[in-house]
């Protein structure tokens, strides 16, 4: 029997792989930031349908690492690295990452970090989106949006979080697991010996 302490302590591979996922998605964020800004002039608040891509680390991290803190850490590092690459939102993007990561973290904390099923992923994605929506509406769009626009925006971000980040990460984790790279993680151990 593993004790609780060793089951929750992050190994070096956990840290490095979570960071690598974060760095890879930070590069995706960089592209996404520019796509988002390109949509600025005509698609507000509807462009929020693509928001989920920014929330993927918050869900994919826990699905792969399966340790407490994985959602928060992965999303936060992705945000910091995307700021290092150069982001139009400066340091606020780090706070966004924090809020989104906490949202994603809750999805798995709610079941005591024991379940990593599709349902958890959907909830984590939605919560991450909820965090994002609250932050964005208070910091960026507080005075630009009408009340209706605010609701539309929030609903779209949450939905995009659940579908793109939640279901998307879940599918991505399964695909990764099939390739054998996740063999060192609890998420990847269902293979037949050859």
């Amino acid at each position: 029997m593993e004790t609780r302490a060793t089951a929750t302590r992050w190994r070096t591979v956990d840290i490095v792989v979570a960071s690598i996922i974060a760095v890879a998605f930070a590069a995706v964020f960089y592209a996404w930031n520019n796509l988002w800004n390109a949509l600025e002039s005509f698609a507000l608040p509807w462009r929020a349908v693509i928001y989920g891509v920014w929330l993927i680390p918050a869900v994919l991290g826990p699905l792969v690492i399966r340790k407490p803190g994985a959602g928060l850490y992965t999303e936060l590092v992705a945000a910091i690295v995307s700021a290092l690459f150069g982001s139009a939102w400066g340091l606020t993007v780090v706070v966004s990452g924090l809020v989104q990561g906490i949202g994603g973290e809750f999805g798995f904390a709610a079941t005591g970090y024991r379940n990593y099923r599709l349902g958890n992923a959907l909830i984590a994605g939605a919560l991450s989106g909820a965090g994002a929506a609250v932050f964005d509406l208070s910091v960026y769009y507080g005075d630009t949006f009408s009340a209706g626009q605010k609701w539309t925006y929030a609903a779209l971000v949450v939905a995009s979080g659940a579908i793109v980040a939640g279901a998307g990460s879940w599918a991505l984790q399964r695909a990764l697991s099939k390739t054998g790279v996740l063999d060192r993680f609890p998420s990847g151990r269902e293979r037949v010996a050859v």
């Binding site: 591979v13 792989v17 760095v23």
Partner: peptide, 16 residues
Amino acid sequence: LLVAAIRRGIRLATAM
């Protein structure tokens, strides 16, 4: 690329 990155990460962790 994501797969390759994760694989590199695992090796890097071992090297560390």
